[in-house]
């Protein structure tokens, strides 16, 4: 199974906060609705979002999300970075749009199966 670190390398992601990047990624959930992520994401998912505020880290912790990926050139707020460092949650960023990243991630994950 792919790790956060392997996905960061294959997709050329910039790691802003480095938590445990040896964590496995079992799948991916894409949503900007935190309520939706709370209800439907699974443990060890990679979470792709445009949300940059600190509550994303709290959601990631309670849901056991392996890493956050902010797309379209978005960067986490300073408070988000502090919280992620404290909770050891990995946050990655990319200038690419969600669709392109998700498409490439899908191919990578399918080829690993």
């Amino acid at each position: 199974m792919l790790t956060v670190g392997a996905i960061a390398e294959k997709l050329g992601l910039n790691i802003v906060v480095k938590g445990d990047i040896s964590q496995i990624v079992s799948g991916c959930y894409i949503s900007d609705l935190l309520s939706d992520v709370m209800a439907h994401s699974n443990e060890h998912n990679l979470w792709i979002t445009l949300q940059t505020h600190p509550n994303t880290v709290a959601v990631a912790v309670v849901k056991g999300i392996s890493a956050l990926l902010l797309t379209n050139g978005r960067n986490p707020e300073p408070g988000t970075i502090r919280k992620a460092e404290a909770e050891k949650v990995t946050i990655m960023v990319s200038p690419e749009p969600t669709f392109e990243l998700a498409g490439r991630l899908y191919q990578i994950m399918k080829s690993e199966e």
Partner: peptide
């Protein structure tokens, strides 16, 4: 706008 308040909280607690 923060991504909360989608009306999914109470149903999720129940679930």
């Amino acid at each position: 706008e923060m991504g909360w308040g989608a009306g999914m909280g109470l149903p999720n607690i129940s679930k």
